[in-house]
Design a protein around this nucleic acid. Structure first.
Ligand SMILES: [Zn+2]
Ligand SMILES: [Zn+2]
Ligand SMILES: [Zn+2]
Ligand SMILES: [Zn+2]
Lengths: 132, 132
DNA sequence: TCAATTGCGTTATGCTATAACGTGTGCGAT
DNA sequence: ATCGCACACGTTATAGCATAACGCAATTGA
C-alpha cells in the first residue's frame, strides 16, 4: 500500500509521534495537541487508525501505546512480522524484523490452517543502558 | 516455580477460565462470579495476578483477556516463549511453543544487550473452522 | 505478644476506546 | 446544476479495562 497524502489531523498526530522519544498513549497525544485544537480522544484515534492502516505507525498492544515506524522509507506491511523490544525503564522501543521468525511462525500457522491477519510480538524488559 | 494451593477466589477464577471455551475479560469473569459473592473488579484482578504469577493462566494483551494455560501439568514459565493464535470469529485460542522462534528472538535480544522479562506473541486471524 | 505478610472486601477513581449524532467539503454521475 | 456519495472532522456521551487507597481478618514466625 502506498501512503496517501496525510490530512491535517493525521499530520499533527504523526509529527507528535515522530518527535517523541518513545511510545505515546492516545491520551498523551491528545494532551500534546490541545493547543492545536484537539479536544476529544476520537480525533486522535481516527488519525491513528489511518496511520496504522498506512503502516507508518505501530500499536504496542502490551502498553496501549503508539510509536512511529522506525523504517519510515520502507513499508512495514511489506516485510512480514515486526517485533518490538520495549524497555520498561526508559520506554525506548527497538523495532526489528526477522525472516526466520516469520518463517517458523507462519509455518506453524499454516500447519494449523490458521489464516493470520494481525500479529503482535513484543518483548518487555530492560535495554542495555537501563540494565542494572 | 511450583504452584501453591490456590485460595478460594483464585480457585473460583481459575475454574471459570478452565471451563470457558475461550479467553474471557476480567469483567466477564466478574459477571460469572457474582453469584459466588464477587462484587468488584479487584477481586478478579487480584486472583488473576496470582494465577499469572503461577503460570497457570495467560494474559492476551491484544484482546485484554485471560485464558487458562493449555498445558496444565507442565509449567509454561519453564519452556520459553509462548505464542497464541487467536481466532477473531469464534474466539478460539491455540497456544504453542517453538524453540527455534525462541532462539532467534533471544539471540537478537542478546545482541542488543536487552534483558527480556515478559514476552507477548499473539497472532489474530481466522481458524480452520472459521475461514471463509 | 508483637510484627509482618497475605488475602479479602469496598469505594472511588483513572485510563483506554468506541457509539452515535451532526457538519462540511469535494467530486463524479445524471 | 444538483444530486448522491465518500470522507474527514467536531462533539457529547458512554462503554470497557485497570488500579489507588482504605480498612479488616487470618496466619505465621520471632
Ligand atoms: Zn515499522
Ligand atoms: Zn531503557
Ligand atoms: Zn501455557
Ligand atoms: Zn474460529
Amino acid at each position: 500500500m502506498t501512503t496517501p497524502m496525510l490530512t491535517k489531523n493525521q499530520t499533527l498526530v504523526f509529527d507528535v509521534l515522530t518527535k517523541a522519544e518513545g511510545p505515546l498513549s492516545a491520551y498523551t497525544i491528545l494532551d500534546k495537541l490541545r493547543d492545536n485544537g484537539f479536544r476529544a480522544p476520537l480525533q486522535v484515534y481516527r488519525a491513528l487508525d489511518k496511520l496504522l492502516e498506512y503502516g507508518v505507525v505501530h500499536r504496542l498492544e502490551s502498553i496501549n501505546s503508539f510509536v512511529a515506524c522506525a523504517h519510515p522509507h520502507e513499508n512495514c506491511h511489506s516485510h512480514g512480522l515486526v517485533a518490538f523490544a520495549i524497555c520498561e525503564s526508559c520506554g525506548q522501543v527497538t523495532e526489528f524484523h526477522d525472516h526466520e521468525v516469520d518463517h517458523r511462525l507462519m509455518g506453524w500457522l499454516k500447519s494449523q490452517k490458521f489464516t493470520a491477519e494481525k500479529s503482535t510480538i513484543e518483548i518487555r524488559g530492560h535495554c542495555a543502558s537501563c540494565a542494572a
